[in-house]
C-alpha cells in the first residue's frame, strides 16, 4: 500500500502545463484557510496542508476583523456552527502576525451553511467582504475547487455563485480535473490573467502547496 501511495503522490504531482495552465506561484506564510459555501471541501484543503506539513490557521466563517487580527484569529474559540483552529507555528509567526495568504475552498453545501446559520445570500455577502479585505490588504488569494462534479451546478446555482464570488478575484486558481470538465475555471483564469493549475485528484494539491509555500 505504501508503494502504491508513493506512486500515487508522484503521479498526482506530475503537473503538466497543459493549455491554460501556468507555473505555481510563490506565496508566503502565515496562511489562513477558509470556505466559500461551507462544504466539506475545506476539510480536504486542511488535510492537504497537513500532508504537505504546512501549518495554518483555519476558520469556516471568518470576518474581515478576524483576518485583520492575524495569526490566532483574535483568540476566537469554536462554538456551535463556528470552527476555529490555529496550528500556525507561533515561534515563527507570533499571534497577531498578518496573514500573507488565504486559501479558499469553494463549494456550497446547504447543510453546511445551515449549520452555520447562513443562507446562500448571507454567505455570498460574507465571502465578498472577505475577498475584498484580502485584495485591499494584498493577501495572496488562492481559489481552490476540489468538489468535482458534485460541487458544480447550472449557472446561478449555489455552487456557481460561490465560484463567481471568489475565482475571478483570486491571484491563483487550483482545481481538480473533474471540477473543470466544462472549462469554467480555465476560462475565468484566462479572462482575468490569473495563474491556474489543474490536478487529477485532490491529493495532487499536496505538491502544489509545497511548491507554493516552500
Amino acid at each position: 500500500m505504501k508503494k502504491a501511495l508513493v506512486i500515487l503522490f508522484a503521479a498526482a504531482s506530475v503537473v503538466t502545463l497543459a493549455a491554460g495552465q501556468t507555473a505555481v506561484p510563490k506565496a508566503k506564510l502565515p496562511v489562513l484557510t477558509t470556505s466559500a459555501g461551507q462544504s466539506n471541501d475545506v476539510n480536504a484543503l486542511n488535510i492537504v496542508l497537513e500532508e504537505a506539513d504546512i501549518k495554518y490557521d483555519y476558520c469556516d466563517v471568518p470576518t474581515p476583523e478576524m483576518v485583520a487580527a492575524g495569526v490566532g484569529l483574535g483568540n476566537k474559540q469554536s462554538a456551535e456552527g463556528f470552527h476555529v483552529e490555529s496550528t500556525t507555528d507561533l515561534a515563527k509567526f507570533p499571534k497577531g502576525t498578518p496573514f500573507k495568504a488565504c486559501l479558499v475552498a469553494i463549494g456550497a453545501s446547504l447543510k453546511g451553511m445551515g449549520a452555520s446559520g447562513l443562507t446562500i445570500d448571507t454567505e455570498e455577502a460574507r465571502v465578498k467582504k472577505l475577498v475584498d479585505y484580502c485584495k485591499k490588504n494584498k493577501i495572496f488569494l488562492v481559489a481552490v475547487h476540489v468538489g468535482g462534479e458534485a460541487g458544480r451546478g447550472p449557472a446561478g446555482s449555489d455552487n456557481e455563485r460561490m465560484i463567481d464570488a471568489v475565482a475571478p478575484l483570486a491571484d491563483f486558481i487550483v482545481v481538480t480535473k473533474d471540477s473543470n470538465k466544462d472549462g469554467r475555471f480555465s476560462k475565468i483564469a484566462e479572462k482575468g490573467k490569473i495563474g491556474f493549475q489543474q490536478v487529477d485528484y485532490a491529493l495532487g494539491l499536496v505538491d502544489i502547496v509545497k511548491k507554493m509555500f516552500n
Binding site: 500515487l8 498526482a12 466539506n40 476539510n43 480536504a44 486542511n46 488535510i47 468538489g147 468535482g148 485532490a202
Partner: peptide
C-alpha cells in the same frame, strides 16, 4: 469529518469512484 474526508480523497484517487463528504447538520 477528517477521517471521512481522507477516505473520500483516497477512494477517489486509488479506487476511482466518487464519494464526497456532506456535513451532518446540527
Amino acid at each position: 469529518a477528517k477521517f471521512a474526508t481522507l477516505a473520500s480523497m483516497m477512494v477517489k484517487a486509488m479506487e476511482g469512484f466518487d464519494s464526497h463528504v456532506e456535513p451532518s447538520p446540527q
